[in-house]
Design a binder for these strands. Structure first.
Ligand code: FES
Ligand code: FES
Lengths: 136, 136
DNA sequence: GACAAATGATACTAATATGGTATCATTTAT
DNA sequence: ATAAATGATACCATATTAGTATCATTTGTC
């Protein structure tokens, strides 16, 4: 039961590396050397982040990637959702038909509360906080 | 990105039903009729819960299942872990070798904090709370 | 302009997890 | 003895995750 998949993990580490290097353009080659991650896989990850506007890409010789936003306005939740889609604790599914007890079910309400909390937490963690050396 | 799989969901609903019926022995047939869930699947789910000591089973004619614990001492986390294994936000994996920055990595620390929080939350939700009609 | 160095786009494969089914063995109330 | 139940297991289908490979396009440099 994991909340963060491999691609999200690679993305996080790549983005953290980029953030620490400020606006330097960094090639896939450099990232592969630094992070020891499969080249083809990380390329796909970076391209996706570029399409979502989190990274900027530079084509051609001496090309590469850099952050497209301030480190304090990139959030963990956003990165997770790029690769893992929207967050849903429990769909409350019984086959095809809508859950009959939806309105009075306490379980569903509890789960929704937890979901809201997790989302709030993940939204508060900015890239800046991640790479900071300060506590919390 | 879902935190609760289908089998956990079925388990929760079955267990809630059992809890509401106190110590009555309830057959798979009854559960299937009540919950409209695939018979073979729910059987597997119930057998697993029995092995883990959360349910008691009664074989033979008029057999079935009942709760093996007080509703206030069965927790959501336990049920989830029966089907989904131990909770791990992020394994911090770079291929086979241990993560080199494990000790100073802030990202890892943040994720661990979130993980701890989720576990704490899920541990606090007892079956009794789930089926209660009171708030929170 | 030729060329090399980079990313863009896309299609493919392999491994694992999830969701579900089927079958036969065993136990037990009647 | 028999029918009604669970136990144990093996199997199958689909989706997701993880990873690879290939060719097209862009761009700096000689
Ligand atoms: S989760 Fe749907 S009624 Fe409980
Ligand atoms: S998660 Fe391992 S060094 Fe950051």
């Amino acid at each position: 039961m994991k909340l963060i998949t491999r691609d999200t993990s690679y993305a996080l580490h790549a983005i953290c590396y980029l953030a620490k290097e400020n606006d330097r353009i960094i090639s896939v080659d450099e990232l592969v050397k630094e992070l020891k991650v499969p080249r083809a896989f990380i390329r796909k990850v970076l391209q996706k982040l570029n399409k979502k506007g989190i990274l900027k890409s530079y084509k051609g010789a001496h090309g590469g990637f850099s952050l497209n936003k301030k480190a304090k306005s990139v959030y963990l939740l956003d990165i997770m959702q790029v690769f893992q889609g929207p967050f849903k604790l429990n769909e409350c599914v019984f086959k095809k038909k809508a859950c009959p007890e939806l309105k009075k079910c306490r379980l569903k309400k509890k789960l929704d509360n937890i979901e809201d909390y997790i989302i709030k937490e993940l939204k508060e963690i900015s890239l800046k906080k991640m790479i900071s050396s300060k506590k919390l």
